[in-house]
């Protein structure tokens, strides 16, 4: 077989290494030639304006979307071989919440790999799912029909499903979009706890004011990679200006990049 980048130890250990990734709709590229390597054990954000290709980047990395060029490696191997290391939380709005299923049913979907077709869902599967639900504070909703949940509760259920997968890398698409403050806090706590356990997390994030509080690494994306690296080094006035162009006023940017301690004092 052809030589590959796996020989590079940084790439081989990285939960997700993307090189030269281009995805297009027709002749319109959604993301163009993006390079991005996630350090193990990091909590990373992908940040950029609407239409910057954030969700597309995730979908292309997971092989859900066809890529025009580029390479994606999960722990140094193609995704298809390594998918058991990865849990994916799609955008909440991408599914039909009117589906006839209970909260517990959805979380049990995260155990898909552990169940062969002839096996019924057993006690221990349900216990595992309940445990995941309690980690997101939703255990009392287990029997609830999913259509009856609020947006924040739906997002927690999705997170619980990802927890059930016991993955090393969890990829979340806009986990904080349209959720209440309590849910946002709960989700951040779960993410930080996972990081404590040495897991790696990658979120598409749209709220610039919380990037510094929640994340340690960041990818600024606007079709191209603008900057990537530790939040302290890369989440600056200059990179934000370049990412968002005129969509953010200088005052807004100043407020965003100010260290979080300053905002707390204010």
């Amino acid at each position: 077989m052809k030589a590959s980048r796996i020989e590079d130890p940084v790439i081989a250990e990285s939960p997700l290494a993307i090189h030269g990734l281009t995805v297009s709709y027709g002749q319109k590229p959604v993301i163009y030639s993006v390079d991005f390597v996630i350090p193990p054990g990091s909590l990373s954000a992908i940040v950029g304006p609407n239409g910057a290709g954030k969700s597309t980047l995730l979908k292309a990395a997971l092989g859900i979307k066809r890529r025009l060029s580029g390479e994606v490696l999960v722990y140094g191997e193609p995704y298809a071989k390594q998918s058991h290391h990865v849990a994916y939380v799609p955008q909440r709005s991408s599914v039909d919440w009117d589906f006839p299923a209970t909260v517990l049913d959805v979380v049990v979907m995260g155990l898909f790999r552990d169940l062969r077709w002839w096996q019924l869902t057993r006690r221990r599967h349900r216990d595992k799912a309940m445990e995941c639900l309690s980690r997101v504070g939703m255990e009392s909703f287990a029997k609830r029909q999913i259509g009856q949940l609020s947006g924040g509760q739906q997002q927690r259920v999705f997170l619980a499903r990802a927890l059930a997968q016991s993955a090393d890398l969890t990829i979340l698409d806009e986990p904080f979009a349209g959720v209440d403050a309590a849910t946002e806090k709960a989700i951040v706590e779960v993410l930080k706890a996972l990081k404590q356990q040495g897991k790696t997390l990658l979120c598409v994030h749209h709220d610039l004011s919380t990037v510094r509080d929640y994340f340690d690494h960041v990818l600024l994306l606007n079709v191209r990679r603008i900057a990537a690296g530790p939040v302290d080094d890369m989440f600056t006035e200059a990179t934000l200006q370049e990412t968002y162009g005129g969509r953010l006023s200088p005052l807004q940017i100043e407020r965003i990049v100010a260290p979080s301690s300053a905002t707390q004092e204010a």
Binding site: K2, A3, P29, S33, S69, E71
Partner: peptide, 21 residues
């Protein structure tokens, strides 16, 4: 796209693995 990426990789002396490139 492949041509451009290939040329840039050459300029930066990176190895190229993609067969189409």
């Amino acid at each position: 796209v492949h041509l451009r990426q290939g040329l840039l990789a050459m300029a930066r002396r990176e190895a190229i693995y993609d067969t189409l490139t």
